[in-house]
């Protein structure tokens, strides 16, 4: 469970101070699905970084299961990321020289899992996203949708509590978009994840049971009943 209290993030660009997040309060329960929407530069990705422990707020608290990520030393924060948080990026962010299976394995490396187990778990994860036949393929040999599915397998192979997705369909065409959203939704349900997704796509936003909109660093959360 996430609890964000008075989260502020300021960047200094030359003489200007940019308030990427301006006193954000937000609670995300275990197993929740939250979609974050807003204009470019509004602070969506910054909020996602705070949730993922990729960056620290200038002030405020980002509490995950009772631990304030803002105060954690780097080593422990890294550990939280490696064990509890899965990321899916807009540009897939696969390592171009590694095969699909090896890319998925990279998420298990920090956990100290033996190579044979890593390979087995990575293969299973890829099968679960429909890429059981593409284990040895390099990212360049896969379509955009397939690459994103590899990225989803990589995010989920360690069985995290949280899945954070930053515009996961941003680089995909419509058919691919639906395919990926189906996979993400299925995974969310199967794994009982807390799923936070940033998107520009209004169609996707409309489907979300809970929608957070960020403008100029300020957040507004809309709850939908029956969604």
């Amino acid at each position: 469970m996430y609890e964000l209290r008075g989260v502020t993030k300021r960047y200094t660009r030359g003489k200007d101070v940019v308030h990427a997040l301006d006193g954000v309060d937000l609670t995300i329960g275990d197993g929740d699905r939250l979609v974050i929407q807003g204009p470019t530069g509004g602070g969506k990705s910054t909020l996602l970084q705070m949730l993922g422990g990729l960056d620290r707020p200038t002030s405020g608290e980002v509490v995950l299961d009772g631990t304030d990520l803002a105060e954690l030393p780097e080593a422990r924060l890294t550990r939280v990321r490696s064990e509890n948080i899965g990321f899916v990026f807009q540009s897939f962010n696969l390592i171009p020289t590694l095969t699909a299976q090896e890319n998925v394995e990279t998420a298990l490396v920090p956990l100290g899992i033996k190579a044979a187990d890593r390979r087995e778990r990575a293969a299973e994860a890829l099968k679960s996203v429909g890429l059981g036949e593409r284990l040895g393929h390099l990212p360049s040999e896969l379509s955009g949708g397939q690459q994103q599915r590899v990225a989803i397998a990589r995010a989920l192979v360690k069985q995290p509590k949280v899945l954070l997705a930053d515009e996961p369909t941003g680089n995909l065409d419509e058919s691919m978009r639906d395919e990926i959203m189906d996979v993400l939704e299925r995974m969310w349900k199967e794994h009982g994840l807390t799923f936070v997704m940033v998107t520009h796509d209004s169609a996707l936003a409309k489907k979300a049971p809970r929608l957070a909109t960020i403008r100029k660093g300020r957040i507004t959360v809309t709850e939908k009943t029956g969604a």
């Binding site: 993922g52 990729l54 780097e74 080593a75 890294t78 550990r79 990321r81 490696s82 064990e83 990321f87 990026f89 540009s91 962010n93 390592i95 171009p96 990279t106 998420a107 490396v109 920090p110 956990l111 990589r154």
Partner: peptide, 16 residues
């Protein structure tokens, strides 16, 4: 940058 940033996001320590 993105490659190493991704690995760090996945939980790779800076040392690794």
């Amino acid at each position: 940058v993105r490659e190493f940033g991704t690995l760090k996001a996945l939980g790779w320590k800076s040392g690794r």
